[in-house]
Design a protein around this nucleic acid. Structure first.
Lengths: 213, 213
DNA sequence: TCATCCAGTAAACAACCGTTCTCCGAACTA
DNA sequence: TAGTTCGGAGAACGGTTGTTTACTGGATGA
């Protein structure tokens, strides 16, 4: 697989990743705009000045974190939407995938939820763009389903945004529920999310017959 | 009007409010956890140490801002839900009220959207608590509507949370749309929000006949 | 009128910040 | 092997931060 990248570049990528990981860890309890450059390098164990070898500032690091956090989502959504089961099974599967994603990458989820409306413009825009691409994929998948016959593109997109937003909100709620340590809280969130998606699904099926402009 | 409150206390409340206003202004482009005490007092024009006469730290100020921002919402939602028009009219009215609320108190909305998942625990909890009370009010109002006959309390609450979350998300999206300066962006957000609420409303009407547990 | 209260002031504190500049030494390349 | 590249170290910079301590002067209430 290519020519092993060289010792020099390998080391560089290693500390670069260490910076990203350290930042992500520290961001569990702060927001990006209050996270200091020195704070991150201290955790990694390198001099503060070495930070500049990898990122111009914390904003740039934040944008990379966004890609790292939201990149894996696309694979996930494809897997869900490709299935051809009934609506009920797809809902259960969707919520289950969100649930395990939250459990596997809690720090990434928290970061996105926090910085989506956070204080760093570049990061906000990166998240918005990524979620937009996400919604576009969902819309494309929804459109190809039989239930969407006769729907105009705007309405499909509207529904897709509704879904995406619900998933993001659910993920954040799930995270808070687990952090608060309440025992059945997480299951409660999951049950509510399932029913909400079910209600939306019902509304979708009756959209054409009841919706008039 | 009571007994005019005294010159002393009046002055104190005045600078206290000035601190809150200055902070809210500065928070348009930062998050609370990166907002400094000195920064706020500098804008108000008082000595940094005077801050402690009003708040223990920025977190405490943030909690007060939450009450200030979300307190007026309750009046708003009561006004909407008390109306007895048809579903369609209620949706239009709801979105219109959200729209004018965003235009009147943009800084408050931005603050809530930003700090809802922000880096200060006390503020997050304050927002969560307030939104919870909000959802409870909506649930109570929904329950008394004829459409909700035969609904169990859990389902009503589930629907209420769906509505509340949609309103908050819409408000934030509306804010971003206006900030970005794109001409028709705000109207687009409003139209999408209306259709989403419509779809939810349709799902609600068919919930009992299609939902089985 | 006079003692008391108390919002705001002023100075000083140690701690931290981002950033620049210079240098080192190991990995690269020719 | 000799020369170059470059990730990282180290020191120093001016500036900002939260917090403490002691003080001032006008509103307050007996």
């Amino acid at each position: 697989m290519s020519h092993s990248l060289g010792v020099r570049q390998a080391q560089k990528q290693k500390t670069r990743q260490a910076l990203l990981d350290a930042a992500l860890g520290l961001l569990e309890e702060q927001s990006l705009s209050s996270l200091g450059l020195r704070e991150v390098t201290r955790v990694v164990g390198i001099a503060p000045t070495a930070f500049y070898r990898h990122f111009r500032d914390m904003g740039e690091l934040g944008v990379v974190l966004v890609e790292e956090a939201l990149g894996s989502l696309h694979v996930m959504v494809r897997a869900i939407l490709a299935e051809q089961d009934g609506a009920e099974e797809r809902i259960d599967r969707t919520v289950a995938v969100v649930e395990q994603h939250v459990r596997r990458y809690p720090l990434h989820i928290r970061f996105v939820a926090r910085e989506r409306h956070g204080g760093v413009r570049a990061v906000r825009q990166a998240i918005a763009g990524e979620l937009d691409r996400f919604a576009e994929e969902v819309a494309a998948a929804l459109k190809s389903q039989p239930v969407s016959e006769g729907w105009c593109d705007d309405d499909v997109r509207m529904l897709a945004e509704l879904y995406v937003d619900r998933l993001v909100t659910t993920a954040a709620a799930l995270l808070d529920a687990e952090a608060d340590g309440a025992e059945g809280a997480a299951e409660q969130v999951v049950r509510v999310a399932r029913r909400q998606l079910r209600l939306i699904s019902i509304g979708r099926r009756h959209w054409r017959e009841e919706h008039q402009e």
